[in-house]
Design a protein around this nucleic acid. Sequence first.
DNA 1: AAAAAGTTTAACCAGTTGGTTAAACTAACC
DNA 2: GGTTAGTTTAACCAACTGGTTAAACTTTTT
Lengths: 210, 210
Amino acid sequence: MASSLPKKKRDKTMQRIFNAAQKTFADKGFDGARMDEIARLAKVNKATIYYHIGDKRTLYERILNEIFSGIADSLLQNDDPVSPAEERLRTFIRMLAGLIDRNADLAAIMLREQASGAKDFPETLAQDFARIIGLITEILDDGVKTGIFKQTTPVIVHLMAIGTMVFTKMSSPIRSKLAGHVAAFDNIGNRLENEVAAEIEDLILGAVRK
Amino acid sequence: MASSLPKKKRDKTMQRIFNAAQKTFADKGFDGARMDEIARLAKVNKATIYYHIGDKRTLYERILNEIFSGIADSLLQNDDPVSPAEERLRTFIRMLAGLIDRNADLAAIMLREQASGAKDFPETLAQDFARIIGLITEILDDGVKTGIFKQTTPVIVHLMAIGTMVFTKMSSPIRSKLAGHVAAFDNIGNRLENEVAAEIEDLILGAVRK
DNA sequence: AAAAAGTTTAACCAGTTGGTTAAACTAACC
DNA sequence: GGTTAGTTTAACCAACTGGTTAAACTTTTT
């Protein structure tokens, strides 16, 4: 495709670097990731990364920002504040499941960030988190007011939703190995969508519903 | 305390190394952890680690084994197969919450292992996992038979329980920072036990109850 | 008490890795 | 066409890090 847009070459190079970095950080974590490998994956000289973006930590934070602002945008754009709270919560969970399922890197990076306890948590990230928590708080409050949800702590419900999905998504290889050990083991495969996502959705709805 | 037991010095040294290693791996991850730091924390010469245990990966796998076999033992020992399924599930969740709350390193290490997708997952670990999944499967089946639980996929319920607790535990610093951003933000602090653990317990019970 | 077995230590090292640099190359501008 | 600004590259390097070694030290055994 002959440069579909008159976009600057700079942007294309940057995008290749970001893609490579996201995959590498997801697979190996910040400390395990090698700048040489990111460069190789991006088909770019290592010095080009330093020229365009900066050092390893800066590159990593850019990736984090891209990911979490993307999630927050998705969730907020797809929320319809006038529909019933149950529908809104289902949409919220379904969107999240879709994002995680379409991009396993998200799950890995979220887990690692959570494990690091948000040491050196950049301010911009906090704002995206706040947007997400704000939304689910609003949805749950809505449900409580209309009498269909019981009183819960929104953060916990949110952590339940995201924790369940991320763990389910990433545990796929472990579950495959386990299939040989537990007799009645129900292997649910790698996919989060469809039946599995639907079950998670139902479980969480069951948890908050009055 | 003047050597409370005639235990060999070896065991004491080993224990110091394991403690230091667990903390370091939890804080920094496998790649981020430095053997020199583990040695310093354990107040032992680095070579002593290699003499008693072996290389970094071996040390790490020992820690993993200690942690997960401990969890599996705790859960199985505290299960009372003749009590009602709801009680058994509550005990299961409460035990897990207690373990995670008493030792934050568990949560961090679990998250990182999950993020790595169980690459080079040692066989012994698989057996402990199998024991845990076997137990919760039995409990949930029990509840389905006695008509109090709906039909669910045990692995998913288990991942929901563990995911929720681990995420809640480790998100404490993020939540503190967030408290400044979201107006109606409900900061639940660092503790998992008491109210928060009780709420998680109720949420999960609500999710699986008919 | 001396020999043997077990444990600790300081010093060392080779391979790796994040980051730099100066020169070459390319696109834009006059 | 030539000059300038922007971009890419190969080669390089200093700091770090997992792991080793040989010698010293301690405990157990005979």
